[in-house]
């Protein structure tokens, strides 16, 4: 199978989150299934930011939703601080929820347009801190202040009065008001202009330091991911290709797909010489994924073994693991 195996996982006692063999399938008629995520494993140490990159259809967002237990998974374990979220249900799961929170790509569609900013940020407190009603107001003001919004000026306003960047700040405040240990951020800056994107990326880094967050940061922009992450995981059509230290992987990618992604990322270097695109063709559909290594249909190094056998994760450097039969470094 492309990108299976758990060689890259660390000892369970060293990590906050350990996802093993994650499988997510969506039915699409006549008993058929799309394998959106297929046998993906990764872990996150406390205080670490893992960047999850890949193109559309790679299963990044599905992975995020599965970690948040917002989707049904099969044959997987999602250990969060020792508890397997995949098998936890009902009230027990609900009690854990304040400890892992999420922010989304489009802040406008993830807040209630009829609520004021203060109400939006107070909502988690309403659910979880019924006893300490008096403290809500101060907590909300503190949280808004932390994300750079003034409660006096913004607290009574509603979503439509804000720009995308400011609204993303509101969403960050709402996600952090319960002081979670894990923050899952699904493309939180993709819809923003670059100057605003830089503000939000800086804010997320500040919040991480201030509250000691562990973060799963999803983006398709490799430069943003490098800036914010300690480690990076590369996904392709529902599989993990490569995972490890961000500096190491960006400097010496071992998987041809990682290399292709890095080569395709636009750089601010003025160069109009005819460069052949790193890879040809399109991403295959996860409804009908290629056999063996899923990247073989576009890979310049593919051979027979790639079509037949799925490569297994193995170590190529201190903190660099990849699943490829013909790695670029060994």
């Amino acid at each position: 199978m492309a990108g299976s195996g758990t060689a890259h996982l660390r000892a369970p006692e060293d990590v906050l989150l350990r996802v093993e063999g994650l499988e997510v399938q969506f039915p699409f008629g006549r008993g058929q299934y799309v394998h959106a995520v297929s046998d993906v494993s990764f872990d996150l140490a406390r205080g670490e930011t893992l960047g999850l990159v890949g193109e559309s259809g790679s299963g990044k967002s599905t992975t995020a939703l599965a970690v948040m237990r917002l989707l049904r998974t099969s044959a997987s374990s999602i250990h969060f601080d020792g508890t397997d979220l995949a098998t936890t249900e009902g009230e027990e799961l609900r009690k854990l929820r304040p400890r892992f929170q999420m922010i989304f790509q489009d802040p406008a569609s993830s807040v209630n347009p009829r609520r004021t900013v203060s109400q939006i940020v107070a909502e988690p407190l309403k659910l979880w801190r019924r006893d300490a009603r008096d403290g809500w107001k101060d907590t909300v003001a503190e949280m808004l202040d932390a994300v750079g919004l003034d409660v006096e000026a913004t607290g009574d306003r509603r979503a439509h009065e804000f720009s995308g960047g400011q609204l993303q700040r509101v969403c960050i405040a709402r996600a952090l008001v319960m002081q979670p240990e894990l923050l899952v951020a699904d493309e939180p800056v993709s819809a923003l202009d670059v100057s605003i994107q830089a503000q939000i990326v800086n804010l997320l880094k500040d919040m991480k330091d201030r509250y000691g967050l562990t973060m799963l940061f999803i983006a398709h922009d490799l430069a943003v991911v490098k800036n914010i992450s300690n480690r990076v995981a590369v996904m392709y059509v529902g599989k993990l290709c490569e995972i490890g230290d961000v500096e190491r992987i960006y400097a010496r990618p071992a998987h041809p797909y990682t290399r292709a992604l890095l080569d395709s990322s636009p750089r601010l270097r003025v160069d109009r010489s005819e460069v052949a695109p790193a890879v040809t063709g399109d991403i295959p559909s996860p409804a009908n994924p290629p056999s063996g290594c899923r990247f073989h249909t576009r890979c310049p190094h593919a051979t027979d073994v790639c079509r037949r056998e799925e490569p297994v994760m193995r170590q190529v450097a201190a903190d660099q693991f990849m699943a490829c039969h013909h790695p670029l470094v060994d």
Binding site: V201, Y250, L262, S265
Partner: peptide, 18 residues
């Protein structure tokens, strides 16, 4: 604007000018 763009060849964790 140019300064606020994250660079793929810049070191990780660098602060972005805004």
């Amino acid at each position: 604007l140019l300064a606020s763009i994250p660079r793929i060849d810049a070191p990780s964790q660098s602060r972005l000018p805004t």
